[in-house]
């Protein structure tokens, strides 16, 4: 049976997933060797038992925490996939500001808003966390693949190493933080 891979994007921009698609025709080669479980690639919404879970994005709201814990429960190996999962990335640049101040400025006091605007409070919206966290602050993480986004070459090397059970090693030019 082919090992299963699940992927998700939490507080990310899907850039890492776009970079995964940049492996191009090698996606077909990958599909010979693994099967995708929950992922934006196939639109499966729930995660089952998997060998590898790729987590893009940091943790910025309650739903992110729930999804991340769900992935940790089901995946043997969790990979922090890209800069935001590794260190919070761009969303974490709000961390030195007060959350209420940000919400008030964006939804109530910034110029150009329609009269009567207020901070969204729909029960369907996940509650934001005070700070954005790298995923290793919430769950145990087995491997880290930095990069904003990691290049297709880096992803390909990393996944190949993981699938054959080797500790992923990224050489010069593949290990990047930008």
């Amino acid at each position: 049976m082919k090992p299963k891979i699940a992927t998700t994007s939490l507080a990310g921009c899907f850039g890492c997933h776009m970079s995964l698609l940049d492996i191009d025709l090698r996606l077909l080669e990958l599909l010979q060797r693994v099967e995708f479980d929950r992922s934006p690639i196939n639109d499966i919404k729930t995660v089952g038992p998997c060998a590898i879970g790729l987590i893009e994005g940091g943790v910025c709201n309650a739903e992110n925490v729930e999804v991340l814990r769900e992935f940790r429960r089901h995946c043997k190996i969790i990979v922090a996939f890209g800069a935001c999962a590794v260190n919070g990335g761009l969303p974490a640049q709000r961390n030195h500001l007060d959350l209420r101040d940000i919400l008030e400025e964006v939804y109530q006091t910034s110029p150009g808003l329609a009269p009567g605007c207020s901070i969204p409070n729909d029960p369907e919206l996940p509650l934001p966390l005070n700070k954005v966290h790298p995923i290793h602050e919430i769950v145990r993480v087995d491997y880290f693949l930095p990069g904003c986004p990691p290049s297709a070459e880096a992803i390909w090397k990393f996944l190949n190493d993981l699938i054959i059970g080797r500790t992923p090693v990224l050489g010069h030019g593949l290990l990047r933080y930008d």
Binding site: A80, V86, N87, G88, A92, N95, P134, H136, E137, V141, Y143, F144, L145, P146, L170, L175
Partner: peptide
């Protein structure tokens, strides 16, 4: 260095 490891 693959991760900053500590809490930011």
């Amino acid at each position: 260095m693959m991760t900053p490891h500590f809490d930011h």
